[in-house]
């Protein structure tokens, strides 16, 4: 009847196993999937995240250049992060703090169409414009050349999603399928010739450390 004795006494004389939560918070695990955020300067408004999201919590407006996420609807699955062709979506390691009112995560950037129009108007100003966001995001150093190329690639399926028969966008971007991650993978300079998701995982790990 008293097999529990040992446990009872060892519990009584050792530290409690629970955590006094709001006051004591455990260090997050390095690969934990937490709150979603977007580096809007890098975003090409390709709408892949909106299409891929299982809970449809992301709304992208490529005309107005807004990227909106409803954090209450987000299920922290990380599918958008895995599928983003320019790797501008990331997850923090921690969750959003609870709030009494509903907060929408709303970001505004420059959609590629507007950027291209600006480029067409003032051709000499364009490189500087394109260079700006790169300078602002120092952590992703290896992606300098790609970040420049990506908007152009992304543009193809973006403006002509219906007539995506041209082989170039299909080969490189094709946001609906996994190969979309390949351009990002190449930029990592880790030609591990594996499935798309593998280098993706690596890329995340690397950023986590930095």
């Amino acid at each position: 009847m008293f097999f529990m004795t040992k446990t009872v006494f060892s519990n009584l004389f050792s530290r409690y196993a629970t955590r006094l939560h709001p006051f004591v918070v455990r260090e997050p695990f390095p690969d934990a999937r937490g709150e979603l955020y977007c580096e809007i300067e890098k975003c090409i408004f390709c709408m892949t995240c909106q299409r891929k999201c299982p809970s449809q919590c992301i709304t992208v407006d490529n005309k107005a250049g807004t990227w909106t996420c409803d954090p209450m609807a987000c299920v922290y699955c990380g599918v958008c992060v895995d599928n983003c062709p320019v790797a501008c979506l990331h997850q923090k390691q921690t969750y959003r703090a609870p709030t009494p009112e509903r907060l929408m995560l709303s970001l505004t950037g420059t959609p590629p169409r507007a950027a291209r129009l600006a480029k067409a108007k003032t051709p000499e100003a364009a490189p500087a414009r394109a260079g700006e966001p790169k300078a602002e995001v120092p952590p992703v150093k290896a992606e300098e050349p790609k970040a420049e190329a990506a908007p152009e690639k992304g543009e193809g399926p973006n403006e002509e999603a219906a007539s995506a028969k041209a082989e170039e966008p299909k080969l490189k971007a094709a946001p609906a399928a996994k190969p979309a991650a390949k351009p990002a993978a190449k930029a990592q300079a880790k030609p591990k010739a594996q499935a798309a998701s593998k280098p993706k995982v690596k890329a995340k790990g690397g950023k986590g450390k930095a």
């Binding site: 695990f29 390095p30 690969d31 934990a32 999937r33 299920v75 922290y76 699955c77 990380g78 599918v79 997850q91």
Partner: peptide, 15 residues
């Protein structure tokens, strides 16, 4: 649960 969170990113719905 800690193993789940550390290896998959989420505690329960590991995705």
């Amino acid at each position: 649960m800690d193993v789940n969170e550390a290896t998959t990113g989420n505690r329960v719905i590991v995705s």
